[in-house]
């Protein structure tokens, strides 16, 4: 009995070592060397060449379904990265922004403001599972990198970038129209939806962090007919005024002329690739007007972005 238990423990220990070894091979080596396996896996942006990202978008599933960095690259030549996690809460947003600033020092950070309304004491089990997987079993998210490495070992590309050609975006082609009865979700209201103290505390930290590093923080609200409303708009507007930040509410007056019949994937909760195009184009144009970033499309340092775009469109 004891012998069998000992054997089982040894088996699991060796397996753990093997998985760690394979993770090292499949994760971006340059980043692993600098940040370690778990860190690199948890923050995919670390896989990018340092200081090459112009703008970072932080938030929940609304971000990875609603903002397509490849559209921004194609139309404007700016590098953008989605650092999003389903059901993200402000503490994770803060950590993500911290890592993004440390490795990339972007010019602009867009924060999807719906995360501020999520109660950190009531996180969905799926979000916790995803977060734990990202954090402790990174190979699950990176296993497919064998396609790149197994066949390129002879090239010995020591940079080993993750080469995530979607740059954090999840391409969604599905269309599920929103019910017309929900079209009036932005009915005017004078009321406010309260934000819990813990979230305000982390928001405060995010603002200070951005100020300290001279990064422009912009609050955004991606079109979402299921969860957004005027009360939330009021609360975030108030917060933006208080901290002197810009707030772009795409929900207000249907700023982007979202077609709720074809631009959404699940009845209005998340955008599909059509809706994402509209938001991404707007943000690209916003960056252009800001004058903070420049077009890199012809810059040799950014060739991997052109390659990513080629794969993305193929």
């Amino acid at each position: 009995m004891i012998k069998n238990i000992g054997k089982s423990i040894l088996f699991m220990f060796i397996l753990f070592l093997l998985i760690a070894g394979i993770s090292c091979l499949l994760l971006p080596w340059r980043a692993v060397k600098k940040y370690g396996i778990l860190y690199t896996a948890n923050y995919p942006i670390l896989s990018e060449e340092e200081n090459t990202i112009d703008a970072v978008v932080v938030g929940d599933s609304l971000v990875y379904s609603g903002i397509n960095p490849m559209v921004v690259w194609d139309k404007y030549g700016y590098t953008m990265y989605d650092c999003a996690l389903a059901g993200q809460i402000p503490i994770i947003s803060y950590e993500t922004i911290q890592e993004s600033i440390n490795s990339q020092h972007p010019k602009v950070i867009f924060l999807e403001s719906d995360v501020l309304f999520r109660n950190p004491k009531n996180i969905p089990i799926d979000t916790i599972k995803l977060w734990l997987t990202n954090r402790y079993i990174p190979i699950i998210n990176y296993h497919d990198n064998w396609k790149k490495y197994l066949f390129n070992f002879l090239n010995n590309d020591k940079k080993f970038t993750k080469f995530d050609f979607y740059k954090g975006y999840h391409l969604i082609k599905k269309i599920k129209p929103a019910p017309k009865s929900r079209y009036n979700y932005m009915e005017y209201s004078k009321e406010y939806l309260p934000i819990v103290d813990e979230n305000i505390e982390y928001f405060n930290k995010i603002v200070k962090l951005c100020e300290k590093n001279e990064v422009k923080l912009v609050l955004i609200s991606i079109p979402n007919l299921k969860l957004w409303n005027y009360k939330k708009h009021n609360s975030i507007s108030d917060l933006a005024n208080k901290y002197n930040l810009e707030f772009i509410d795409f929900n207000l007056d249907n700023l982007l002329k979202i077609n709720w019949q074809i631009d959404v994937k699940d009845g209005g909760g998340h955008l599909n690739f059509r809706g994402a195009y509209k938001v991404s184009d707007y943000l690209g144009n916003y960056l252009k007007d800001s004058g903070l970033v420049k077009d890199h499309r012809k810059d040799k340092k950014y060739q991997s972005w052109n390659e990513s775009y080629k794969i993305y469109t193929s």
Partner: peptide, 8 residues
């Protein structure tokens, strides 16, 4: 783990 067709 590595060659399984799962995930994104």
């Amino acid at each position: 783990i590595v060659f399984g067709a799962y995930g994104a």
